[in-house]
Design a protein around this nucleic acid. Structure first.
Lengths: 201, 201
DNA sequence: ATTTTGACCTTGAAACTAAAAAAGTCAGAA
DNA sequence: TTCTGACTTTTTTAGTTTCAAGGTCAAAAT
C-alpha cells in the first residue's frame, strides 16, 4: 500500500488505529492487525511512528485536539459564563461516550514520562479553558472571585474527582464504563450548579 | 500470656496490631511478630480473630469508630454549620496524619465483599454526618438547599474526589503520602468555602 | 531520495515450577 | 475457657520456559 505523501499515510494509519482501538481497545490490538487493515507491512508503521505507544499517544493527541478545540470554541463564543461551563460538561459527555474504549486510563498508569507530561498538559489546558470562562464571567460581572486561576484549578479538580468517588468501587484496570460515567456527568452538573452559586457576584 | 478476660485480651491484640501496622504497614507485619510482641502464641491470635484480614478490619473499625465519634460529636455540638464543616476537615487531617500507614487503600482494593461493605458503610456514615450539619444549617437559616441528602452526597463525593485529582500522578499501591495529603486538605478547605457560599441562604 | 517490505531479532507477558515464608488448624495442656 | 506447640495449607517469591507480539534492518520498489 502506498499513499500520496508522508502526512497522508501517517493520517491513514492513525485512522485505522483509532478504529481498532475504539472497537477492541488499544492493548488488544496488534500492530499486525493494523497493518493488515491497511494492506501494508508492519514495518511501514514503524516508518511513521517510533513504537506502539507513540502511535497510541498520537491517536489520543489527535482526538484530544478536536476535544479541546471544541471546548475552546465554546469558551470564546460564550455569552453567559454559566451556560458555557455547563456546555463544557456536555462536550465531555459526548467525548467520553465516543472514546471510552481508548484506554485513556491505562496510558495514565503507564508512568512513562512523556505520557505523564501529555496528561499534565491536557489537565492544564482544560483548566485554562475553565479559567478563561471564569475570567469572562468576572469581566461581565457575572462572577466575583479573588483569584481566577486558583478557582479554575479547584473547579477542575473537584469535577474530575467525581470520576473516582461517584462509583462505589474503583476498578483498577477497566476502562471507563459508559453507564457509570453518565452518573458522573449528572454529579458534575450538580456540583457545577452549587459551585457557580458560590462564585456568583 | 493471659489477660483478665476475653475482651481485654482481644483489645491487647488490637493494640499490638495497630502499633505494628502503623509502624511497618499491615502487609509487612506477620502474625508471628504480633504474637512475639504480646509474648503469646500465634494460635492465640486465631482464638480471637478468624484470620489476619479480620484482624486488620477490626483494627480499622476500632480507630474508625473514634474518628466517626469525634465527627458526630462535632455535628451535635456545633453552633455554626459552616464552622462545623470546616472542623470535619481538620478532624480528617489529624486522623490521616496519624494513620496513613494503615493501608486503608489496600483493603479497599481487596474487593472482598465484607471489606467493600465496611467501606460503603463508612462512606455512608461520613455522608450522614455532613447531612446532619447541613440540615442544622438549614434549620438555623444559615443554608438553603432543595434536598439536604443529595447535597450532602455531592459535598462528600466532591471532597473525597480531591484525594485523586490533587496529586498529579496517582500511585497504585502506595499508601497515602502525608505531605501530599496536606495539599488535598488545603483544596478541601478551598472547595468547602465555595460550596458553602453556594448553599448559603 | 523516499517509501516499503520480508525476514529476522528482541522483549515482555503468561504459564509453569520449586522453595521459602507466612497463614491457618487442632489435639491436648493449663 | 483460654492458650500453645507442632503441624498442615496457602501465599509469595524467584527462577525458568515459551510464544506471541513488538521492534529492526538490509535490500527492494517506487
Amino acid at each position: 500500500m502506498q499513499a500520496d505523501n508522508k502526512d497522508d499515510m501517517r493520517d491513514k494509519i492513525l485512522e485505522a488505529a483509532l478504529k481498532r482501538f475504539t472497537q477492541y481497545g488499544a492493548s488488544k490490538t496488534t500492530m499486525n492487525e493494523i497493518a493488515e487493515d491497511l494492506r501494508c507491512s508492519k514495518a511501514s508503521l514503524y516508518y511513521y511512528f517510533p513504537d506502539k505507544n507513540g502511535m497510541h499517544q498520537a491517536v489520543l493527541q489527535k482526538i484530544g485536539e478536536t476535544y479541546f478545540q471544541e471546548m475552546e470554541m465554546e469558551a470564546r463564543n460564550a455569552t453567559s459564563a454559566t451556560k458555557a461551563l455547563f456546555k463544557l460538561v456536555e462536550i465531555r459527555r459526548s467525548f467520553i461516550s465516543r472514546f471510552c474504549r481508548l484506554e485513556l486510563f491505562k496510558l495514565l498508569n503507564d508512568c512513562s514520562t512523556t505520557v505523564q507530561e501529555l496528561m499534565v498538559a491536557a489537565k492544564k489546558r482544560e483548566m485554562e479553558i475553565h479559567a478563561a470562562i471564569i475570567q469572562h464571567g468576572v469581566n461581565t460581572g457575572e462572577f466575583k472571585v479573588e483569584d481566577v486561576h486558583k478557582t479554575a484549578v479547584l473547579l477542575t479538580q473537584a469535577m474530575m474527582g467525581l470520576r473516582f468517588t461517584v462509583p462505589d468501587v474503583v476498578h483498577k484496570n477497566n476502562d471507563i464504563d459508559v453507564a457509570l460515567f453518565e452518573r458522573v456527568i449528572e454529579q458534575q452538573k450538580a456540583l457545577l450548579e452549587v459551585f457557580i452559586k458560590g462564585i456568583k457576584a
